[in-house]
Deep mutational scan, measured.
Amino acid sequence: MQIFVKTLTGKTITLEVEPSDTIENVKAKIQDKEGIPPDQQRLIFAGKQLEDGRTLSDYNIQKESTLHLVLR
């Protein structure tokens, strides 16, 4: 499924993921596309910060959901 990741600069990254993918996994995909190390990434969905060990389905993230990427 496709999800979108919006950065603070207003750029939107499109990722191909599975509901069973972990947040860690998603961060690795963002690193592949954008070169941002996962340890600098914070992903936010519905106002919650997403934890590395959880999966997209844990957070009920469905196709075409938009996550927000904050760098630390």
Rank of each mutant, 00 (worst) to 15 (best):
E64K: 03
D32I: 13
D32E: 14
N60K: 13
F45P: 00
T9P: 08
T14N: 06
Q49F: 07
L67S: 01
R42V: 10
I23L: 12
F45L: 15
N60Y: 07
E24S: 04
G47V: 03
K29S: 10
I13H: 14
V17Y: 06
M1V: 04
A28D: 08
S65Y: 10
I36H: 04
D58Q: 10
E51L: 03
F45G: 13
K48W: 14
V17G: 15
G10R: 02
L56W: 02
K27F: 13
K11W: 11
I30Y: 07
Q41N: 03
L69F: 12
G47E: 14
I13A: 03
I44W: 12
K29F: 09
E16I: 10
I3W: 00
I30N: 01
E24Y: 08
I61K: 00
D32A: 12
I61W: 01
R42L: 07
P19Q: 15
T66V: 11
S57Q: 13
P37H: 10
M1H: 03
L69S: 02
Q31D: 04
T14I: 08
L67H: 01
E18K: 10
L50K: 00
I13S: 08
E34S: 10
T9V: 06
E51Q: 03
D39G: 07
L56S: 01
F45C: 02
I61C: 01
P37C: 03
H68N: 10
Q40F: 11
F45S: 10
R42N: 14
T55V: 14
V26H: 00
K33M: 12
L56C: 02
T12Q: 09
L15T: 01
D58G: 04
I13E: 02
E18A: 11
I23D: 01
T12S: 10
D32P: 11
A28P: 01
G35A: 14
D39N: 05
E18G: 12
E64C: 02
P19A: 12
S20Q: 09
H68I: 05
D52F: 12
D58V: 06
F4R: 04
S65R: 01
G53W: 09
I61Q: 01
K27S: 08
D21N: 10
K6E: 14
P38R: 13
E51T: 05
T66F: 06
I30M: 04
I3K: 00
K11I: 12
